[in-house]
Design a protein around this nucleic acid. Structure first.
Length: 647
RNA sequence: GCUGACGUAGCUCAAUUGGCAGAGCACCUGAUUUGUAAUCAGGCGGUUGCGAGUUCGAUUCUCGCCGUCAGCUCCA
């Protein structure tokens, strides 16, 4: 919402970044202000910012405040550029397909899209044609012209665009309705835009896909065209390079190449087969985590995979999670289901005897395999599957213990994420619209979480309304080696399940009290986490996780025995070592070892066999001089690296 | 689930307008005994995802199903 000026005659105060103040009449164009600062700045300007709000150079100034000129160097300018690129796309599509209905066309991360209502979906040829037409629109340098209109006029202008008419009806009475025109194309749009279409030079259309109108699957499906746009060719090239890098790291490709895991049509979609090498990675993580959580005061439990449906009636899953659950199977007249979550089982263990305040906090942990029905279209490699193992834990505690438990968790998470080399950010998700429990309790819990975070100097952002219906939560977002964000650990406060199960403990006052419950996962799903790790490390696991840590390569048959003995020595030291004595050249076997991303290749020739040494080639050390070291020393070095979990 | 694209040897990909299904790598055998990213030769390998249909003839065209991919919606 844009403030309308209270009194049109009062001058507006613009405070420039250097502290200088300019007074201008309301209605002055930012372009003129920028020109007044410097003509070269006007050339470089993309838009301006007033008190953090971006507007274009040709929108009359309505208010004063901190005034800043956005150039191509500002991150915020990219959104403006991409939004304009979306309009240019629509301009091109409308020229070639006048009957295409126009939907929304916003800027998104790395690019933009525009939704069109068309009878026939677009083909790759269409995209090429649209992109060529866009280049013409750019060459024509149409200015983006903003107009503010009243509702009647807006409806008149978009009389033939039902999607836009619907949007106009949704606009509040006090909202300004504006249109933007570039050459032949007019769009209902809030802006801002770059000055003219000629500013959008470096772009590409990437792909098309169906998208429901307004994200609602009950409404018609539109055709969405995605594109990317940048201010310089170098940035566009860098973006393409990033895509290639992501492709190179794809966990599905690497998983097959490194023989880690697979799926099989006969097993079913979204169900993972862990091969021996993948199982090593997974079990290393599990063993590490087991030690970690035992040190942090957890106790391990196991609960069944298939349980009576009645349990999920009590927990409420059958009511609120049913569409994500596998169907029931009948056993002796009773219905059973694969568990979609581990919490009800852990609660049953808590309830198995009467609990005293002296027992609390109780922390139950399980690597619990759960099954959830996911719609076929959402399945994705290891990252979105139908069966997965959570490193799940539930903490039962008193109200007074919560902040201590949260602090303990933050330590745990920090230690774990450092081990894997992930930087992370923290997000606090608050009360959603439909939530259980009194609002005061939510506020209390949210404040508590915020206080603990602040007390530790941990920066966090707030996701308003992003909490689960049963309680607020903390989400940790991992940042991987190429800057992408992944869902990491989560901690959720639960006001609901203790009520539903009527959980109690006896307090020091000899009265019954309801415990609080925390749900938390660290890696979340082993499947997703390992898939993510593969991409993070590009398949090159650190020694402690590597399925094969050392591969011994005898140069020729006469040192085969020495190499075999060295391999045994490595194994005896607890290392995962293998001997590659295949009848192939050394070059061939070195290449194979590199491609399998083995951390160390230990080459043994005549000299090494005689001296009891190995020629060590560290992964990726192509062209570098090899270290000739005594076998004992090499073993000690790799063991040290393994035990310290060096990255 | 919805929209679109795709599905050929273990993997990556070929196969004029419908006309005998092919290559590289991997695997096996032999030769070679190798000093840091592919030694040479030979061989094995296929109901072209599955099932119908059109046709003298289908990897190719049509329909259905299954799976994968890009998104939408949803999510660990």
């Amino acid at each position: 919402m844009i403030d309308r000026p209270a009194a049109a005659s009062e001058p507006l105060k613009l405070i420039l970044p250097d502290g200088a103040v300019r007074e201008v009449a309301p209605g002055t164009l930012p372009r003129d202000v920028v020109a007044g600062i410097g003509p070269r700045l006007l050339n470089a300007a993309v838009a301006v910012e007033i008190d953090g709000e971006v507007q274009d150079l040709t929108t009359p100034l309505r208010r004063g405040g901190k005034f800043r000129v956005l150039t191509e160097k500002d991150v915020k300018s990219l959104d403006v550029l991409r939004h304009s690129a979306a309009h240019i796309l629509a301009t091109a599509v409308r020229r070639l397909r006048p009957d295409a209905q126009i939907g929304f066309g916003p800027a998104i991360e790395d690019g933009f899209y525009y939704d069109f209502g068309v009878k026939e979906p677009f083909t790759p040829d269409d995209l090429a044609a649209f992109e060529a037409e866009m280049r013409k629109v750019v060459a024509e340098k149409f200015p983006f012209v903003r107009e503010e209109v009243d509702r009647r006029e807006a409806k008149k202008r978009f009389a033939d665009d039902p999607l836009k008419l619907e949007r106009i009806d949704d606009l509040g009475a006090d909202e300004i309705i504006s249109t933007y025109t570039d050459g032949p194309f007019i769009d209902l749009c809030r802006g801002p835009h770059v000055p003219d279409t000629g500013r959008v030079q470096h772009f590409a259309l990437t792909h098309a896909a169906g998208a429901y109108w307004r994200g609602d699957e009950k409404r018609p499906m539109l055709q969405r065209i995605y594109g990317t746009a940048w201010f310089t060719k170098a940035e566009l090239d860098a973006y393409r390079h990033r895509l290639e890098e992501a492709k190179r790291r794809d966990h599905r490709t690497l998983g097959a190449a490194l023989d880690l895991y697979s799926t099989d049509q006969r097993v079913g979609p979204g169900l993972i087969l862990w091969h021996p090498k993948g199982a090593i990675v997974r079990s290393q993580i599990e063993e590490y985590e087991k030690d970690l959580i035992l040190r942090h005061g957890y106790e391990l439990v196991y609960t069944p995979h298939v349980v009576s449906e009645k349990l999920f009636e009590i927990s409420g899953h059958l009511q609120s999670f049913k569409e994500n659950m596998f169907g029931a199977m009948e056993v002796e007249g009773a219905a059973y289901r694969p568990k979609p979550m581990n919490c009800p089982g852990h609660i049953c263990i808590f309830e198995s005897r009467q609990r005293s305040y002296r027992d609390l906090p109780i922390r139950y942990a399980e690597f619990g395999t759960v099954y959830r029905y996911e719609r076929s279209g959402v399945l994705h490699g290891m990252l979105r599957v139908r069966g997965f193992t959570q490193d799940d834990a539930h903490v039962f505690c008193t109200m007074e213990q919560i902040d201590g438990e949260i602090a303990r968790l933050l330590d745990l998470v920090d230690e774990m994420l450092k081990t894997f080399g992930y930087p992370y950010t923290v997000e606090l998700s608050t009360r959603p619209e439909k939530a259980l429990g009194e609002p005061e309790r939510w506020t209390w819990a949210q404040d508590l979480l915020a206080r603990v975070l602040e007390g530790r100097g941990q920066p966090f952002t707030i996701d308003e309304g992003g909490g689960a219906f049963y309680g607020p939560k903390l989400d940790f977002k991992l940042i991987d080696a190429i800057g992408r964000k992944w869902q990491g650990p989560t901690v959720q406060l639960d006001f609901n399940l203790p009520e539903r199960f009527n959980l109690e403990y006896i307090g020091d006052d000899n009265a019954r009290h309801r415990p609080f419950m925390l749900h938390r996962v660290l890696v979340g799903s082993m499947e997703r986490f390992v898939g993510g790790l593969v991409e993070h490390y590009a398949g090159a696991f650190p020694v402690w996780l590597a399925p094969e840590q050392v591969r011994v390569l005898p140069i020729s048959d006469d040192v085969r025995e020495a190499a075999a003995a060295a391999t045994e020595r490595l194994k005896a030291a607890g290392l995962r070592a293998s001997l590659d004595d295949r009848n192939e050249t050394l070059n061939y076997r070195v290449r194979d070892g590199e491609m399998m991303k083995v951390p160390y290749l230990a080459v043994i020739g005549k000299r090494e066999a005689e001296q009891g040494t190995v020629a060590v080639r560290a992964r990726g050390a192509s062209g570098k001089k090899q270290d000739i070291v005594p076998l004992d020393e090499f073993i000690a070095r790799v063991v040290r690296e393994k035990e310290s979990r060096t990255l």
